[in-house]
């Protein structure tokens, strides 16, 4: 079970009314390399991974949900006061038709989330390598959004999230090293 703290992991401030940014941020909300995919991937893989790295997957999955909440806050702030006309100008007319300004797990192109985005092979190395790749892809996605965004306050939050991807990737790489080392060490049973 979890204990919920009623605050964001990092403050989210949006300085410009720019619903187009909300459309880009949906890639991190319901996209293949987004925070939902990350959280569900690790939360599920942790059952069938050697026990010395279960805690790592559990902790990172939990943090990904905190990131998902930050992304949701950004999208909400960027769309909550937008008129249908503004949403249409931002390329969100189709979203408006389906959802009004409700959030939904779509990617930036409006494709709904699917469990096919994530994997669980059951092989610890295969799964951890997938997790490393997922972190690097999420890092790259944050970079591309920062490149497109000219909102300094939003970019500040996005930089924090990108840095967390770097740290997560580092920890997954260390998990691989832990599993490799165990194989090399001479153990007497």
């Amino acid at each position: 079970m979890w204990i919920y703290e009623k605050k964001l992991q990092y403050p989210v401030k949006v300085s410009t009314c720019n619903p187009t940014l909300a459309k880009y941020l949906m890639e991190q909300y319901g996209g293949a390399d987004g925070e939902l995919a990350a959280a569900l991937r690790y939360m599920n893989q942790r059952y069938t991974i050697p026990d010395k790295v279960i805690g790592l997957l559990n902790d990172i999955a939990t943090e990904e949900f905190a990131h998902l909440e930050m992304i949701a806050t950004m999208i909400y702030k960027l769309t909550k006061d937008a008129t249908p006309q503004q949403l249409r100008d931002a390329g969100l007319a189709e979203h408006y038709v389906s959802h009004d300004s409700a959030l939904f797990y779509n990617n930036a192109a409006g494709v709904p989330f699917t469990a096919a985005y994530i994997q669980a092979k059951g092989d610890p190395i295969a799964d951890l390598y997938e997790d490393i790749a997922a972190e690097e892809k999420a890092r790259a996605t944050y970079q591309w959004i920062i490149d497109l965004s000219d909102d300094p306050d939003l970019n500040d939050s996005l930089r924090f999230l990108r840095e967390r991807e770097v740290v997560h990737s580092q920890r997954f790489r260390e998990a691989v090293e832990m599993l490799k080392e165990d194989q090399n060490r001479k153990k007497v049973f």
Partner: peptide, 17 residues
């Protein structure tokens, strides 16, 4: 808390190149 990592060696500021 502001930078997103405790470790100086892991900090990597990003800006649109």
């Amino acid at each position: 808390l502001r930078k997103g990592t405790l470790w100086k060696v892991l900090y990597d500021y990003y800006d649109n190149p």
